Computed example of a mutant assay.
Amino acid sequence: MEHSIKSMGHYQTIANAMAYIRANTTKQPSLDELAEHACMSPYHFQRVFTEWAGVSPKKFLQYLTLQHAKAVISQTGNLAETADHCGLSGTSRLHDLFLSIEAVTPGAFKQLGEQLRLKYSINTCHFGNYMVASTEKGICYLHFFQDQFIALAELQQTWPKAELVQANDEHHVQVQAFFQNTNLQGAKIKLHLQGTPFQVKVWEALLRIPEGGLTSYASLAQHIGQPTASRAVGTAIGSNAIAFLIPCHRVIKSIGGIGEYRWGSERKMAMIGWEAARNQVQIEQLPEQLSMF
Rank of each mutant, 00 (worst) to 15 (best):
S100L: 13
Q111G: 15
L142T: 00
Q199N: 12
F98R: 11
F98E: 08
G195R: 07
F127W: 08
T124G: 15
L191I: 02
H143F: 07
Q194D: 09
I150A: 07
T158M: 10
G138A: 07
T105L: 13
L94F: 09
Q166T: 07
H95M: 14
Q146R: 14
V165D: 12
L184S: 05
E102N: 12
Q180G: 04
Q199Y: 08
H172M: 11
I139D: 00
F98V: 09
L97Q: 13
F98Y: 15
N183V: 01
Q157I: 05
L184D: 07
A151V: 03
H95P: 08
V104H: 11
A177F: 06
H143E: 15
K119P: 08
V200S: 14
N183W: 05
E102S: 13
G186A: 07
S100K: 12
M131Y: 10
F109T: 10
L184N: 04
T182Y: 12
I101S: 09
N181F: 08
D169T: 00
L112H: 12
D96M: 08
H171L: 03
L184I: 06
Q199C: 08
G113D: 13
N129W: 04
Y130C: 03
V200R: 15
Q166V: 05
S121R: 11
E170S: 11
E154G: 03
S134F: 05
G128R: 07
K161S: 03
A151Y: 06
T158Q: 10
S100A: 15
P106W: 09
S134M: 05
Q176G: 05
Q174Y: 04
I139G: 01
F179A: 02
K119M: 11
A177E: 13
L191S: 01
F144C: 02
